[in-house]
Design a protein around this nucleic acid. Sequence first.
DNA 1: TGTAATGTTTACCAACCGGTTAAATTATCA
DNA 2: TGATAATTTAACCGGTTGGTAAACATTACA
Lengths: 237, 237
Amino acid sequence: MAAAAAGERGPVMAIPRAAPRAARTQRRTRIQEEKEELILEAALDVFATNGFRGSTIDQIAEVAGMSKPNLLYYFRTKEAMHRALIERVLDSWLDPLREFDAAGNPVSEIRSYIRRKLEMARDFPRESRLFANEVLQGAPRIEDALMGPLKSLVDEKAMVIRAWAKAGKIAKCDPYHLIFAIWATTQHYADFDVQVRAVLGPNRAGEGRFEDAARFLEHLFVNGLAVGGPPAGTAGS
Amino acid sequence: MAAAAAGERGPVMAIPRAAPRAARTQRRTRIQEEKEELILEAALDVFATNGFRGSTIDQIAEVAGMSKPNLLYYFRTKEAMHRALIERVLDSWLDPLREFDAAGNPVSEIRSYIRRKLEMARDFPRESRLFANEVLQGAPRIEDALMGPLKSLVDEKAMVIRAWAKAGKIAKCDPYHLIFAIWATTQHYADFDVQVRAVLGPNRAGEGRFEDAARFLEHLFVNGLAVGGPPAGTAGS
DNA sequence: TGTAATGTTTACCAACCGGTTAAATTATCA
DNA sequence: TGATAATTTAACCGGTTGGTAAACATTACA
């Protein structure tokens, strides 16, 4: 896709610019691989904290320690950078959900899904914010991914959850909203990090907050999805 | 604050511009009130969908049906618009949490808090996204609000929840993470609306999704916070 | 009704931003 | 080593953006 776009302008004449990631030879030099890596790393930094429109090529260039035209040598447009970044990150971002195993024990599957998602929020907050920014602003550049691969994967896993509920292994519940709830609660710690820190205050804002969150969320979801109504003694006035 | 900023430039000379919301007389004319209202309404629209940096004064002007300089007559800078907007919206945004009543029944208090927050996500998604954008990008313009009024309110309500837990009315849990979880799950339906719609698909993306979400979340939190461990029969292989 | 304060518009500007051009520099390899 | 391709840089460009200047229009009010 990127390669096709690169060749769109010059029809016959000797190509005016070197056209990296070109059509003929595949991924060329060592240096190209390194620099693209470097750029995408910087782009992740900048896009994640400023969103697409709020980010400038100059910012990315500065973080990457390169000149702006040099960046544009590797990625023809700002949007191409963003596209490449999304493409590269989306797959690994969905991994935890993919690992969700129909054959496993429902409670432990859900528990470990929560834990994995929380680990990702802790270890890859930029990735989380990259998507959050994008989705929040209407997902103009990842709509396809949302309605395609993402929806398919969720549909598949929702069926698994529904089967568990039907078999009486967990409480009857809407699997989609369950998945939303897990996404929301876990990614919250990456996307709304400053708010979490501000509310917890300097004493509790350390890395321990992820352990506390894990404990709470596991309790919430495991108890919340346990079969049968609330155990007893919760009726008040 | 805004008034003080307005007078910073011209020191002695006859004030060059009309200086609305001026120092002497209080909030002046009817038309001023109307136009400021109009502008903030438009600003909410634009800031909520594009974030601060991603929004332009021209966009806001267009939505408001006014010229850019006219906007800048009422708010001296883009940041002043944003500040005024945040100030105006923050209070009502925190209302549901304020209504959280220590004297009430814990389960029904939590249940109705969830419901109110979900209603706000449905009825005021722009407000939710305004904050989400801001917090996501590091909250450079609302840090004070987060660490001041917000933290205070949460601290207060966290004590209430902790008392409930201590009295055995709900399960022992970290009250801060409980509040985060409620925020995250409810605001998710405003902030990540496109994703929710994309995943649910055209059939289920109608307004009914909020009812489904309410049902699921009430179940999750009420069951999840019920005293005692998971009722029975959830142990698998 | 007249006039001073308030409100609106047109024209403008400097900085920024995405992107291009072309020339210079460096790596590759026959 | 030398030619060729790949990489990097300086200079530049047109459009956008936040904001201003000043003239013009309208409103409030004595």
